[in-house]
Amino acid sequence: MIINARYIAFWGCTIPALQPYVEKAARLVFGELGITLAEPEGMTCCPDPDITHMASHEYWLITAARNLALAERRGLDLMTPCNGCFFTFTEAISELKRNGKKANAVLSENFNMTFKGKVRVYHALEVLYDVVGPENIKAKFTRSLNGLRVTIHPGCKLLKYEEKRLDVKLYELTKLTGSTILTYGLERLCCGVPLMYLDADKAIELRTKPKLDRMKEVNPDAIVVICPACHNQLEKGQLMISEDEEYDIPVISLLELLALCMGFSPDDIGMYLHRIPADDALEKLGLI
């Protein structure tokens, strides 16, 4: 089956700067599935759904509107693997449709463009699950990750849009790779990112540590995430508490797992860049 879809890939800030391996894996996976990804030319930070939005609603809304208007002008929809960017754009679109007069006035005055409300934003999970479909993804697989024991951290923003069932899609796609999903009871617990803005030590102690402790009890080979902020936080948490306790559970993005299944080697994706080395898990799979 040939899928003729074209999206602007909005990578956000965290993925290009801290997790280039996720960007590489995503490009390989979408390339293999026949989806063309256009570059987010001229765009800026989405911006941050919590901090910037709290600090100045108007600045947040108009910056998001500018990014959306740029995509609209090119006639393409946005696809983002970042939960934060997805949240910002989805909320901004509904806000702009309700009350977009001021935003459009600023946009047309300064940049000679307007937001018309045609552009749509998709999460990478939606594109993978709804547009491509699990069976078409599976058709591209050349190897299975049988024997890999993983725990999943869905992340809060996947739960917001109940009708999209993004958390279920994350589970389904992970199951597709052949890895065993372990339940540890604290799946829903926050990774600790929002509390980091208040007090880093408290955030690690109250949110990240209990989560990692319960994960350690079931002894997984890796933690599967999709949200880059959670990815960063779970790695940072392990490195920050490593003085008292050793975790050494690599955090792997779902997109990396899919790329591995499609036959790419860990070095193709750049998995050597992981802050917590994934060597044990890859060795278990016989990939290195």
């Binding site: 391996y21 590489k24 765009m43 100045s56 600045y59 108009i62 910056t63 300064n110």
Partner: peptide, 29 residues
């Protein structure tokens, strides 16, 4: 990894950065 060394966003596009500043001024940040 064979990725573009800097994404064509505000990381490498001075116009995009300039746009942010204009929005900040227009919204009275």
């Amino acid at each position: 990894l064979g990725l573009p060394s800097k994404p064509p966003t505000a990381y490498s596009d001075p116009n995009a950065l300039e746009a942010l500043k204009r929005i900040a001024k227009a919204t009275n940040l």
